[in-house]
Design a protein around this nucleic acid. Structure first.
Lengths: 101, 101
DNA sequence: GAGCTTGTTCGACATTTGTCGAACAACGGT
DNA sequence: ACCGTTGTTCGACAAATGTCGAACAAGCTC
């Protein structure tokens, strides 16, 4: 089945925000922003495989990531350009490790 | 009791995003962004008083709004400047009615 | 083909969240 | 002092959400 990667314009803003409003998913997004395309297995943040898979699906269905299958692995990457186009500044606002107080 | 309006730097990003990741609260934020300081009662989006009060508290405790009491009313306003300082671009990215596809 | 690796899916479960009505509190006007 | 207006708080409840282990699926290697 297709990985269900929606058109970003078809995803409600609230869904995008909700996808980012989780500590684990934010860590994933930060890792992807820094490391580019990454194998799922590399994204280990202290949760089980099942939970990680769940979070990756949420991100994917919110239009934040794309997934490419290769062998037994799956490679995930951020849809930065599209995101920047539709929600300019969003990622930067959220990704900066510690915003200047 | 004080309305519990936290220092924005003390609120985790996920809490800010979660506060924005709700349709009703987004409508409230949009109304505040457009209309400036607004009486609670004016913010009617088809939910009960109790629910509206709940949403306003979530926004306040996420550091997004400030509340001022006057008579029997309470006036709410967006903390735009602080928000812009700590999460530059966030509000704009979220507030624009329909971003250009 | 057997076995290992890599992920997804399937319940199950506890927690959180959005919603409401009702009760309560504070203030203003008559 | 009463009453109406404006909001908050208190359960209660249903729905959504994050988490896990176990089972399953798909691919690679020996």
């Amino acid at each position: 089945m297709e990985p269900h990667e929606p058109d970003l314009t078809a995803v409600p803003v609230t869904a995008v925000l909700a996808a980012l409003a989780d500590e684990v998913r934010l860590q994933i997004v930060r890792a992807l922003a820094e490391g580019g395309e990454t194998a799922c297995g590399t994204l280990d943040f202290g949760v089980s495989k099942a939970t990680r898979s769940h979070h990756l699906r949420v991100l994917r269905e919110a239009g934040l990531t794309r997934t490419r299958a290769a062998g037994t692995s799956r490679y995930v990457r951020l849809r930065r350009d599209e995101l920047e186009k539709i929600y300019p500044g969003l990622l930067d606002a959220v990704l900066t490790p510690r915003p200047p107080a």
